[in-house]
Each structure stands twice: as structure tokens, then as C-alpha cells.
């Protein structure tokens, strides 16, 4: 069963989630809960649909079957205004950062505030500086996104994601391609912001150590299903072949090293057709 043993309704609740791309089932009956105030990690190999899951929670995609509820509301059933109201309570950190390239760091963070609040500019300025202070980039506010390193861009995107004080923040592969120092900064930030601002965080990642270090509860996805779940300690003790291959980074196991192909001998000696 999911982490939270208390009786409170989880912030995000997915039941029997089915999503396909063409004939391929990305999710084939996924159940998961994200408890309020926790850092929940979704792990799995590349292509296991982790990003798709975030898009389903954010209502950018609709499931083919099953349900995703956020704060008790069925996301796919919400009309556009309702969905937009819900999204104002969510922040999402895209893998690329997805900063607006024609706006400065300051204006990027100010963007959601200006779009949604109509606050006077001095107040917007104070809010933006506080958010940038939280990610340590108050001094970089005049820079343009092209002048930022990858790690800085992600921190700016994080400041923008929390600009409207969301309830839920979703991180899409926050550690990918970062140097160890930046990774450490991001790991600490995600945990600290979650606890200090009373957020709920969903971290989608395949960086095992970093993610396990900050997660309260972990789901491991593969082949369209949740194949393991539990606290990081429970997973570390797991004897499942699958979990072991993933956590210990073994090249071969339930996830085969080879892409499906005919036998090597057949390919080499009986072939001659095609390439």
C-alpha cells in the first residue's frame, strides 16, 4: 500500500491508469498515490513513461482509461477554466528548464505572477527576488537564459515553478546531465523547498542515488506497470530481480541488454536480405 497510512486523501491519486501511444501501451493499469507534504519519486528506465505520467497529472494528456485525481478533482474531466485553475496550484520543472528565451531571468520568474495576479510592479519585484533568493540566483536576475549554465537554468525554472506558491511541484528529470556540484545543489533544493514551503513534490528521475536520497516514497515503473513501491529503505532491501537490476545498474536482467532481434547466427550466416 502507498506510503501514507493516515486516512487523509492523497493529493494525487491514480487508479487503473491506461495510456497508449499508437499500439504501444505506456501505462497498463497504474495505481499510485502521492501524499501531501511528501517527496514522492517515480523511477524507471528511459521510455517507461515517467514524463507522460506528469503530463497526465497536469492534464496535458488524457488517459485512455482509469482516473487521475488531484485534490479530489478528476483532471481529465475538468473543463478548460477548471483545469487552468488547478494548474495555478501546480508547478512543473521541465527537463530542459523551458525558460522563455526572449525574457531575462527576472522576467521569466515574474511571468506567472504578472499573468495571474495583477499585483503592482514593486510587489512583483519583491516576490521575484524572494523566489530567486530561495534558489540562490538573486544576483543573476539580469542575465538572459542563453547566459546561464544548465544547472542555473533549472534553478531559475524552479524559482518560476514556485512563483505562485503551488501546492504541488513536479520535477521532470531534474538531475539529468548535471555536474556533481549542481546535482547536490538541486537535491538539497528540492528537499528544502518541499519542507520549508510545505509543498508536495513528485520527482521523476532515473538517477537512483540522488532520488533515493530525498524521496519519502518511491514508485518504480516498467513495462507500463508499477513493479515496485515503498520507502527508499524498503526498496534497497528488495529482492525483486527487477528492482535489483535498476538499483544496482546491471546491464542485463529483466530489461534485456539486446534490443529484440533474430539470433546472431541467423543474422550473420543465413541473412543476405536487407541490412
Amino acid at each position: 500500500m502507498p506510503a501514507d497510512s493516515s486516512t487523509t486523501e492523497p493529493l494525487v491519486k491514480a487508479r487503473g491508469l491506461v495510456f497508449r501511444r499508437g499500439d504501444r501501451a505506456i501505462f497498463d493499469g497504474v495505481d499510485l498515490d502521492v501524499s501531501a507534504g511528501r517527496v514522492t519519486a517515480i523511477m524507471g528506465p528511459s521510455g517507461s513513461g515517467k514524463t507522460t505520467l506528469l503530463r497526465l497529472i497536469g492534464g496535458q494528456l488524457r488517459p485512455h482509461a482509469g482516473s487521475v485525481r488531484v485534490e479530489g478533482q478528476e483532471v481529465a474531466a475538468l473543463p478548460r477554466p477548471g483545469l487552468y485553475r488547478l494548474r495555478r496550484r501546480m508547478g512543473m520543472l521541465f527537463q530542459s528548464g523551458a525558460l522563455f528565451t526572449d525574457l531575462s531571468v527576472f522576467d521569466n520568474v515574474a511571468f506567472p505572477i504578472r499573468e495571474h495576479t495583477g499585483l503592482p510592479e514593486p510587489l512583483v519585484r519583491d516576490l521575484v527576488l524572494l523566489k530567486l533568493q530561495a534558489v540562490g540566483l538573486r544576483g543573476a536576475r539580469h542575465l538572459m537564459p542563453a547566459e546561464l549554465s544548465g544547472g542555473m537554468a533549472r534553478r531559475v525554472a524552479l524559482a518560476r515553478a514556485i512563483a505562485l506558491d503551488p501546492v504541488l511541484v513536479m520535477y521532470d528529470e531534474p538531475f539529468t546531465g548535471q555536474d556533481p556540484i549542481t546535482m547536490g545543489v538541486l537535491v538539497t533544493l528540492i528537499r528544502r523547498l518541499n519542507d520549508l514551503l510545505g509543498l508536495t513534490s513528485i520527482v521523476v528521475s532515473h538517477d537512483v542515488h540522488e532520488t533515493m536520497a530525498i524521496a519519502d516514497y518511491v514508485y518504480v515503473l516498467a513495462d507500463g506497470r508499477v513493479i515496485a513501491e515503498g520507502t527508499p529503505d524498503e526498496l534497497r532491501d528488495s529482492s525483486s530481480e527487477w528492482v535489483r537490476q535498476f538499483l544496482d545498474a546491471r546491464p542485463d536482467g529483466p530489461v534485456p541488454f539486446h534490443y529484440p532481434a533474430p539470433a546472431l547466427e541467423a543474422d550473420l550466416f543465413d541473412g543476405g536480405e536487407g541490412r
Binding site: G58, Q60, Y84, R85, R87, R88, M90, G91, M92, F94, Q95, S96, A98, L99, F100, T101, F111, P112, E115, H116, A157, R160, L164
Partner: peptide, 18 residues
Amino acid sequence: ATEQLSSMEMMAVDPERR
């Protein structure tokens, strides 16, 4: 391509309008 439109949608800002 750089997900700026997606991120705008996730900020509850309609890219078609904005």
C-alpha cells in the same frame, strides 16, 4: 520544440491567447 509552450500551459497561461 523547447517546451516553452508546454511550460506556459502548465502555468495556466493559454499559449494560443498569449
